[in-house]
């Protein structure tokens, strides 16, 4: 796989315009979850590895807080941290899906010139749970409060994403796989590379994760 500057940008897309959904179904109160995620956004015919880690804690029976870091951004010189909460809105009941919502923020700090960006985010998850099996669909959007700081006025206030995933959650272990459509409201471009899109817009990728519960 040929990786050049522009493909490295792909790694940031992925880390930047989208990170995997950390928690869909809130953890039990007092329960911790520590996981690593591998985003695999697609550039050309390849999937780029975007690595991150997170920790989450159930602070009540209906609310889980989490924090995460993206190693891929870090390797390129940007400290990317995220914090947020997932709150159960409607518990699942048999075939009736559960609903949870999330809110939080992403921050980026350049280690070169200390440029800082802060992106609040909010999301909604619908899930079906049967024993250890969790199926979910999620919608999420980042808010770009500094959209006006883009060169030549190319910014947008919202950067939405949509995903569908499967989680296998046991007492001590959880595995996650998620397919995500990134920012389908605008054309994403990396010079001399092709970002597979959806109806001509955005990007897409497969995200994997494993976590320990304790």
């Amino acid at each position: 796989m040929k990786i050049n500057f522009f493909a490295a940008l792909g790694a940031v897309i992925l880390a930047a315009s989208c990170t995997p959904t950390k928690v869909v179904v809130p953890l039990q109160e007092g329960q911790w979850q520590i996981g690593v995620t591998q985003g695999r956004p697609q550039v050309n015919e390849d999937y780029l590895p975007v690595l991150g880690a997170y920790a989450a804690k159930g602070v009540s029976s209906t609310k889980t807080n989490y924090g995460g870091i993206q190693f891929s951004s870090l390797l390129l010189g940007a400290v990317q941290l995220e914090v947020g909460s997932v709150v159960s809105l409607i518990p699942h009941d048999g075939l009736k899906p559960g609903i949870s919502y999330s809110y939080g923020a992403q921050s980026f700090l350049s280690t070169r010139d200390y440029a800082f960006r802060f992106y609040p985010e909010a999301g909604l998850n619908a899930y079906l749970q049967n024993g250890p099996h969790i199926l979910n669909v999620s919608a999420n959007t980042w808010v770009d409060p500094t959209w006006f700081m883009t060169d030549f006025g190319r910014g947008q206030l919202l950067a939405p994403s949509f995903s569908a995933g499967y989680r296998l959650r046991y007492k001590w272990f959880e595995a996650q796989v998620e397919y995500k459509v990134l920012n389908p409201t605008r054309k994403l471009q990396i010079p001399q590379n092709i970002i597979p899109d959806t109806f001509g817009l955005g990007g897409r990728g497969m995200y994997l994760g494993v976590a320990l519960n304790f």
Partner: peptide
């Protein structure tokens, strides 16, 4: 590439 207001100095 990102659809966000990130400056190039991030990378």
């Amino acid at each position: 590439a990102t659809g966000l207001s990130l400056p190039a100095s991030m990378i």
